[in-house]
């Protein structure tokens, strides 16, 4: 890496910055510009509107349920895949990637055909009097699907690169498996783990397509924030929609700041 010296260097940097400004900076700024276009009081009024507040609560609840579960799953997969060799290891890595490449709409549809009344488990669930589709449970399940790869994706390359020498040393010195994990592995992977969890959180809170299919869109009951944004926008309440959207944009900004801070730590 070097400082730009020739005109073409400046040209390339300028072009990259200009396109980034048009497609990244201005859209981000415009969210807050529209949200606050009628002043602070209207903004706050839009946020504490009961339906929006309820959507915020449901969104936070989904994150509280899904992030810990997928963090544990991510650690388990990464540990199995990076510490042992077994048949089907590569297949397992590929299968974990599946939610990442499946359209959110398709993700929602697969869950509908599993838990919906016409789905695989539909009749059995109905007989037992359990309703999953179009309730918060469906939102949790589909969010788990969509974000299943995130922590694992961050951990697997790191744990493979680190190797298992540290853990083997701890075990040979008499540490138990749990002690080894808590005192040796966890400190080694904590930043990647944190970033994976932050990414999972952002996606759970922001998932739209999949949740849209399975939530049933009952106003004020199964509306997460992205669905509430859509509802307000389609009701021509643009400022209200952008106020609700600004909370999600804020979460996105926090996600980027966490990544930025972690990269500064690494000193890359």
């Amino acid at each position: 890496m070097h400082a730009p010296t020739e005109p073409r260097h400046y040209l390339l940097i300028g072009l990259a910055m200009a396109v980034s400004a048009i497609f990244l900076v201005v859209p981000l700024v415009s969210i807050f510009a529209v949200a606050f276009s009628r002043g602070w009081e209207v903004y706050l009024g839009n946020i504490i509107e009961p339906a929006t507040l309820h959507a915020i609560w449901l969104t936070v609840l989904a994150a509280l349920v899904c992030v810990p579960i997928n963090t544990v799953f991510g650690i388990a997969v990464a540990w199995a895949v990076s510490r042992y060799d077994f048949r089907g290891r590569r297949l397992l890595i590929s299968v974990i990637e599946v939610p990442f490449s499946v359209s959110p709409i398709v993700a929602g549809v697969t869950y509908l055909f599993l838990y919906g009344t016409q789905g695989l488990f539909g009749p059995a669930l109905q007989a037992a009097g359990i309703q999953i589709m179009f309730t918060v449970w469906a939102i949790f399940l589909v969010s788990l699907f969509v974000t299943a790869p995130f922590v694992a994706r961050e951990l697997i390359p790191l744990m493979q690169a680190q190797g298992s020498e540290d853990e083997e040393a701890a075990i040979s010195l008499g540490a138990s498996g749990w002690q080894t994990f808590r005192l040796v592995t966890l400190p080694n992977i904590r930043w990647a783990l944190l970033y994976g969890a932050v990414l999972t959180n952002a996606r759970v809170m922001g998932e739209f397509g999949a949740v849209s299919v399975v939530s049933g869109n009952i106003r004020g009951q199964t509306n997460t924030l992205p669905l509430q944004v859509e509802l307000l926008f389609n009701d021509f309440n643009t400022v209200g929609a952008f106020a609700a959207a600004s909370t999600l944009a804020f979460i996105a900004l926090v996600t980027l700041i966490v990544k930025y801070a972690l990269e500064l730590r690494e000193g890359t």
Binding site: P27, L28, F208, G209, P226, E230, T238, A252, T255, L256
Partner: peptide, 23 residues
């Protein structure tokens, strides 16, 4: 600039949608 690149992954798609159509 490097940090900003990840914005489209961090920003919910519905928010991106209403922002782009408004712009």
């Amino acid at each position: 600039l490097d940090a900003l690149v990840d914005l489209p992954f961090a920003l919910p798609t519905a928010v991106a949608g209403i922002t782009l159509v408004t712009l």
